[in-house]
Simulated scan of single mutants.
Amino acid sequence: MQHITATDTQLASAREVRAAARAGVIAPTSGLAHGLVQANLISVPADWAYDVLLYSQRNPQPCPVLEVLDAGATESRLAPGSDLRTDIPKYRVWRHGELTEEVSDASSAWEEHPDLVSFLIGCSFTFEAGLVDAGIEIRHQTLGRNVPMYRTNRDCVPAGRLSGELVVSMRPIAADRVADAVQISGRYPAVHGAPVHIGSPAGLGITDLLAPEFGDAPELRDGEVPVFWACGVTPQAAIMASKPPFALTHAPGYMFVTDVPDANYAR
């Protein structure tokens, strides 16, 4: 990492996002705290932590690990003073592979499982800032929607007790800007990097682009191409397939906003 320091304005913005989440405000985080890294969350009891770590190591594009917290810890080093129990706008609680509830405060998860080990995983919302700065529209931001995300027919590499398929996010990109989008996102391998697929959704086993499994339906316009990136919701697909007794995750599109500038993860 280059260890570039966030500006006072950026830090204030990130802290405002986390404070709003802590106060119960529920909204997708795409486009918020411009220029700062956002992260996916998966927290599991300590006896499942090695499986998650190994799964992430074997599938680095969809599961790029930014930080692993000690068992029971809730403050991220990527955002001093933060609290993973409250600072994400919406969480998902999983039991035996089933989504049992969505909450805006996950404190009870640590009360139930004091040994939770939390993983912060890179998010494509991070490189969206670079796309915007280059004049590439992020359609879900324009429309005030959540990014569309899809389960695919591509299996991830199994690890320990975990297996599942790749999940992707999609952004419609004007055909003459696709190469730019590939180049810009490719500078950030720690937050999924370059696209995994460009063009026909059928190549990923996606039968209906307007019916994503996660997020909101997209809007494609004439002259645009669907571009797909590996997504940090992939661990949630592994939870559904592998059915650990308990897991806590962010809700797709509702991320943990850190104090770390995007440039620290640029290649």
Rank of each mutant, 00 (worst) to 15 (best):
F119D: 02
T100S: 05
V103S: 05
R92D: 02
T86S: 13
S118T: 13
D83I: 00
Y91E: 06
A79K: 05
L84N: 09
A73I: 06
G97L: 12
V103Y: 11
P89Y: 09
D70I: 00
L99C: 13
Y91L: 12
L69R: 11
I88L: 13
L84I: 06
Y91M: 03
G72Q: 04
A106F: 02
V93Q: 01
E98D: 14
A73L: 09
I121N: 00
L116H: 01
L99E: 11
S118Q: 03
V65W: 05
F119I: 10
W94L: 06
E75V: 10
R77V: 08
I121E: 08
G81D: 12
Y91T: 11
E67Q: 06
G81N: 09
E112T: 14
P89W: 10
D105P: 08
E102K: 14
A71I: 03
I88M: 09
T74Y: 12
L120N: 05
T100N: 06
L78S: 06
D83V: 01
R77G: 15
L84F: 10
E75Y: 05
E67G: 02
D87V: 02
D105Y: 02
S76W: 02
R77A: 13
P80H: 11
L84E: 04
S104W: 14
S107L: 09
A73H: 08
S107F: 03
L66F: 06
R95E: 15
R85T: 12
A79W: 09
S108H: 15
R95A: 13
G81W: 09
D83H: 07
G81P: 13
E98P: 03
E102G: 14
G72S: 08
A106P: 10
D105E: 13
P114I: 08
T74W: 09
A109P: 04
W94E: 06
K90E: 15
H113W: 10
P80N: 11
S108Y: 11
L78A: 04
S82T: 01
P114Q: 08
V117R: 04
Y91R: 11
R95S: 13
L69C: 07
E112N: 07
V103H: 07
D115K: 09
T74K: 01
L120F: 12
A73P: 03
V93G: 02
A109D: 02
F119R: 08
V117S: 00
P80D: 10
E67Y: 06
R95Q: 14
P64E: 04
S107T: 15
V93K: 01
I88H: 12
W94Y: 02
R77T: 11
E101P: 02
V103C: 11
L99R: 13
G122P: 01
D70F: 01
V93M: 03
A109N: 02
P80L: 11
V65N: 07
E111L: 11
S118W: 00
G81Q: 10
R92W: 03
A106N: 03
P114E: 05
L116R: 00
